[in-house]
Design a protein around this nucleic acid. Structure first.
Lengths: 120, 120
DNA sequence: CTGTTGCCTCAATACTTCTTGAGTTATTGA
DNA sequence: TCAATAACTCAAGAAGTATTGAGGCAACAG
């Protein structure tokens, strides 16, 4: 990932509505959500406002879109999110491997959750 | 981590100079760098500009500062960075554990690097 | 105590970004 | 084909953010 891409991604995530959209889509998983459904989940935001933020997120590579009938369905781009993490953390272990551990632990909880309760 | 903290952190990282400062400090490790040295590393930014960005980063919890003689030394706050990652990725494994793997892999390379070449 | 170095603070200006509302395009069902 | 639904586009005003330059406070050496 280049610096410019990272800047766009962080700028996209620095806005309340957009951060909520991304987290909602991360939770929604690969099947994604239609623009209108996202707008409702954001407390009934206007369609132009949604379009503004969703296209901002798409340009930043944080979400992808596909048309499905009259709706346009958005999904989170996990690859970009992990690329962002890698971009930030690169070179963090120079001589001090243990400083990365909190970050690794943070992400691991995500996997452990499903490992601990796999059959719910 | 609360939403508001995450927003501040992302806003802080969405500015070119600040993103570079954080990455530079991540690479510098726990010993950190003096404000003046960071300014030079940024291509000779003015002191007021540095202060503006550094205090912005400190308020966002992304860096910490301590005085050392005449200088003020800044270090990256790895805990906040990893908290940010966790905040974004929380709930990403709902029924699809494999979607988190790219993110985990990204961070792991950081550790593997030192594992592969531990005695350099 | 005086001068110098290192950094922070403040005010003004220029710049960017968000929201709103009206209008447009695409898809579907009758 | 006509009407309805879903979402995008555009322009204007409001709000927030960055840079510059002048000035101030703290630490140290002489």
């Amino acid at each position: 990932m280049r610096e410019e891409e990272a800047l766009n991604a962080f700028a996209a995530l620095s806005q309340e509505t957009r951060l909520r959209i991304v987290r909602r889509l991360v939770a929604a998983g690969p099947s994604g959500m239609a623009a209108g459904a996202i707008g409702e989940a954001m407390g009934g935001a206007s369609s132009s406002r949604m379009s503004f933020h969703l296209s901002h997120l798409e340009q930043a590579g944080l979400v992808t879109s596909r048309r499905k009938g009259r709706s346009i369905v958005y999904s989170a781009a996990l690859t970009t999110l992990s690329g962002l993490v890698a971009f930030l953390m690169r070179d963090c272990c120079q001589g001090n491997p243990e400083v990365c551990d909190p970050a690794i632990a943070a992400l691991s909880t995500c996997r452990n959750l499903t490992k601990v309760t796999p059959h719910v």
